[in-house]
Amino acid sequence: MSTLHTVNKSPFDRPSLQTCLRLAGKGNAVLLFEDGVYGAMQGTAVADTVKEALGNVSIYVLGPDLKARGVGEDKLIDGIKVVDYKGFVDLTVENDKVNAWL
């Protein structure tokens, strides 16, 4: 069963992203949105964890939430894909279920 994991909390505020990445199954998709987008940035204290997870899962980040927070796409970890709202909907449709890590 394919799963889309969503994370909307900052990885520096609580460990939702870290737990999600630890427990997501191989080949699953992870979407970062709202304050969760900070987890997609390069050079942060969680960047190594995220990079390592990219070998196991696909990671997406919601573009409008990046822009709102002034995070340029050039600041993202390589391999993370930016999606718009339509892309968010597509991901929920493509996967059998959604697991929202609050």
Binding site: S10, F12, D13, D65, K67, A68, R69, G70, V71
Partner: peptide
């Protein structure tokens, strides 16, 4: 401090969120 430092990041643009950009 902590995530509060993100408040001061330049280039914030909330147009697509439809909420006020107070930066």
């Amino acid at each position: 401090m902590d995530d509060g430092v993100f408040q001061l990041v330049k280039g914030q643009d909330t147009t697509e969120l439809g909420i006020k950009n107070f930066s």
